[in-house]
Amino acid sequence: METVDVDLAGRSYPVWIGPGLIADSARWRAAIRGRHVLVVSNTTVAPLYLDALAKGLDGLHWSSYLIGDGEIHKTFANVERVLEALGEFGATRDACVIALGGGVVGDLAGFAAACWMRGIDFIQVPTTLLAMVDSSVGGKTGVNLPVGKNLAGAFHQPRAVVADIDVLTTLPQREYRAGLAEVVKGAAIGDPDFFAWLEAHADELAAREAAPLIEAIARKCRYKAGVVARDETEQGERALLNLGHTFGHALETAGNYSEILHGEGVAIGMVLAAHLSERLGMSPGGDTARLVALLQRLGLPTEPSKAHAASRLLELMRLDKKNTAGTLRLILWRGIGKAQIVSGVAEADVLAVLA
């Protein structure tokens, strides 16, 4: 097992990574301070893992609330239902929400926890690789709106993250590959040695071999934990973690959150960002080729669908949270491991890459 500590000013929490962790309730139950627990999960994950988690809640007053499976369920309507469930449950200020699921469940449950009585504890129990390496760590919570992804939310850190790799055995191949995109992203942003390690171990990771998988998750979480510790609320450096996201979120929104998975959007978005960086003379073409080759070895898409017009995607990109004063502010790079925030990017160059 690996442990990554997220150290913030006056606060810290562990990210436990390894097999058998859901059953190891002696480890994570100490993070529950009160006696009320609401487990938020979805209709796919709950039948698989809710009973195992519930064994660790013996003696507590707990209940569960399930949402549908998929990005389209990350809505204010479901946040309201979770809050109503907390109210009907009689949850007090020392209550705890446990998010048992992927990024959608974690984001939504964390947002509900941030709202209830202006903030109660929550624990992340991610069940997808993407959630383990990204959304469960760092305290970003939120929901989607029809005009854009994650436009409503709050920074609310969990008490602990329980990343049990045994749950990945039931994760569909497409979902697993989508999680690998976030692993690659961490290396592409700021760790060229990790990128080379991924190139050397791509086949083992694609085959879900446990030892390299645990190491990859831990390295990605350790990198992200360092960034979050230095910039918790994304005033500067943390924005670099969004390499590819402005493009990817536009693709997700254009497809009504049902055409591509978030990790697939990130993979395509990273490639588009690399092409744009190359077009602007910021980065060498060879690094773009290495990125494309690694993503393809891991079974990920690297080109956007032609179904959405470049002008429509640009319109959606204008709503990105990183933009300032009506100008595009994108995360680009100067090559592998050298991400950079770039303001005032010309829309003509973005359109050329999208087209």
Rank of each mutant, 00 (worst) to 15 (best):
A325W: 07
G119M: 06
A254S: 11
W16M: 08
V104N: 09
V143F: 01
V183M: 06
A307H: 11
L83N: 00
A339N: 07
G90E: 03
S63K: 12
L298N: 14
E278R: 14
T3W: 09
T44K: 09
R219H: 07
N144S: 09
R219C: 03
E71K: 13
G153F: 03
N144L: 11
A31D: 09
W62F: 14
L198S: 07
L83V: 12
T43N: 12
D231A: 09
G142E: 07
H275P: 02
A187V: 02
E204M: 13
L108Q: 01
S277V: 07
L314H: 08
A200E: 14
A181G: 02
D94I: 04
K140S: 05
I341K: 12
F194E: 00
L241T: 04
V40E: 05
G269K: 04
A154P: 08
A188E: 08
A210W: 00
G148P: 09
R219N: 04
G255S: 06
G102S: 08
L332Y: 09
T324I: 13
G226P: 05
A196Y: 05
S311E: 15
V183H: 01
G102N: 05
V162A: 10
G236L: 03
A112Y: 00
G236M: 04
K321A: 12
G56M: 03
G269C: 08
A325V: 06
M132F: 09
L328E: 00
S136C: 13
R222P: 01
P212T: 09
L276I: 01
D5T: 15
A348V: 14
P304S: 05
A309D: 14
C115K: 09
R230L: 12
G244V: 01
R81T: 07
F194Q: 06
N323A: 07
G20P: 05
W116E: 05
C96H: 12
A188N: 06
L21Y: 06
L243R: 00
S135Q: 00
E175T: 13
T288P: 01
Y257D: 02
G190F: 03
A112T: 01
R290W: 10
R35G: 09
H262S: 11
V39T: 12
